[in-house]
Design a binder for these strands. Sequence first.
DNA 1: TTAATTTTATTGTATATACAATAGTTGCAA
DNA 2: TTGCAACTATTGTATATACAATAAAATTAA
Lengths: 151, 151
Amino acid sequence: MRLEEELKMDKFRSVFQKASLNLMFTGEWLMARIDSLLKPYDISSQQYNVLRILRGQQGKPINLFAIQERMLNRMSNATRLVEKLRQKGLVTRELCEQNRRKVEIAITDKGLQLLDKLDPMIEQLEETMFQDVTEKDAEKLSATLDTMRGK
Amino acid sequence: MRLEEELKMDKFRSVFQKASLNLMFTGEWLMARIDSLLKPYDISSQQYNVLRILRGQQGKPINLFAIQERMLNRMSNATRLVEKLRQKGLVTRELCEQNRRKVEIAITDKGLQLLDKLDPMIEQLEETMFQDVTEKDAEKLSATLDTMRGK
DNA sequence: TTAATTTTATTGTATATACAATAGTTGCAA
DNA sequence: TTGCAACTATTGTATATACAATAAAATTAA
């Protein structure tokens, strides 16, 4: 459905305004889809994102500051987010001996297993979303978004 | 900056995964920009969005359910959001006589004046974002997003 | 008319979020 | 060496959010 119908708007100030609204709307839409996929596993999209960041580290621990830098939405609170994951046994937390300001976080086997279970579901969602979008258009989308965020 | 650098990721599973992440990241990025523009006026991007919906009604009141349908992110709580606006004197709330389930909301002059002040700031932000994006690319962006959300 | 269903709004509750304030640790400059 | 700045994490607090439960009014069906 086009954005006009989706938001019941009959006109936009400009194609740029329409693109902005569409970007925010579709971004929210996608996160809501992901959240509802993850809900039965009692994990939020934020938490899922952090687990993937940790897996991307290939077992190397990473501190809270670095996690924050890699998060999709700017850090509201990496400390508390990671603490939730720790309580579920999905990550470990260890004080860094070399630099006692830092806290090193790593994903556990249980965390990896959870991701293994979730991955196909997320990939399936992606496939559905992009079934009528070419690789070229997906690349174009990324390129336009990069341009919008600027240097 | 490209998403790779932004999120410090060296590779993506596919161009589709990259596009998904970019969509969520850039959507959040844009909302955060808008929120920080609005902050001095003590209004959130959600509240701003509702005010614009009301203005779009050309003075005709609109009920909470219809507001919810037009909101950018799915309704968490239109009741409470609108109540905040009412407390600031930006909207009015009136029980509908014809259908007593409904509550009619309308924007006040104060609300319209606030929007008049905010509009140029938001337009300026849009201009900056799209300064290196053509109209054609903006249309393409909207079209791809519409396709992703599907029928 | 009564009962069931649908529409619309409100409330409760747990959690997430933004953002500022604080604090401990380290590194650097005077 | 001391003091200051930068880095990193935690905490406090107010607000926003998701989502379910409830309620009231209207509509439909029996």
